[in-house]
């Protein structure tokens, strides 16, 4: 028996763009999250372009999806690579301001802490966000895949086409940089902590 997803994929392969829309509606939030995180220091418009590019890639390549991995994994892989390509292509362009009021994909869930705790949390979040945005994009990609989206080192290596050792060292360096961001501001955060 075919799942609904399989049916929609079949229709999309035959060129049915409406079926494709329905199929991808289930994935667009995850994909947009990836784009926003990858373009974090830039802006929402770039993330939107990234999403569009990724969707077009999925649309054009869907006939080559072989079902070896989950469809969502295949889509994730295309999205990450579309963003990395786009970032490389835009390298010469200046980044936009880092301080944005919009959701940039790194906003933690709202916890029900007290106001003081919240202020510290948001200050920490701000420092961490900035540290994340200052990471080179290849580090940002691996730490997102590992520590947010929970992919294994092997899967990340596979998605990015690099070896596992490189993945491990990038993740290690990225985590180290983020720890530095916390420790640098330690006094600031800890003064009010009991």
């Amino acid at each position: 028996m075919q799942t609904n997803e399989e049916k929609l994929i079949k229709r999309a392969v035959r060129g049915d763009s409406s079926a494709f829309s329905v199929l991808m509606a289930a994935h667009e939030r995850q994909m947009y999250g990836v784009c926003l995180r990858m373009f974090g220091e830039r802006n929402v418009a770039d993330a939107q372009d990234g999403l569009q590019e990724a969707m077009i890639r999925v649309w054009r390549a869907i006939g080559r999806f072989e079902g070896k991995s989950a469809f969502s994994t295949w889509v994730y892989r295309i999205t990450v690579n579309a963003c990395l390509d786009e970032l490389r292509r835009r390298k010469s362009r200046p980044a936009t301001s880092m301080d944005q009021l919009v959701d940039d994909g790194w906003t933690p869930k709202d916890t029900s802490a007290g106001p003081e705790q919240k202020a510290i949390q948001s200050e920490k979040s701000r420092a961490l966000k900035q540290a994340v945005n200052e990471l080179p994009e290849d580090m940002r990609a691996v730490i997102m895949m590992r520590d947010i989206d929970g992919y294994s080192y092997e899967e990340i290596a596979d998605v990015l086409g690099i070896n596992v050792g490189t993945v491990k060292s990038r993740i290690s360096r990225a985590r180290g940089k983020l720890r530095q961001a916390i420790m640098k501001n330690r006094e600031l955060f800890d003064t009010d902590l009991v």
Binding site: R29, Y32, Q48, G105, P108, K124, D147, I148, I182
Partner: peptide
Amino acid sequence: AQEVRAFLSQAELPEVPQAA
């Protein structure tokens, strides 16, 4: 390290803007 991990694991998926 734990704070970083917590920060990352709590990152919420953003809403997709209608324009996107």
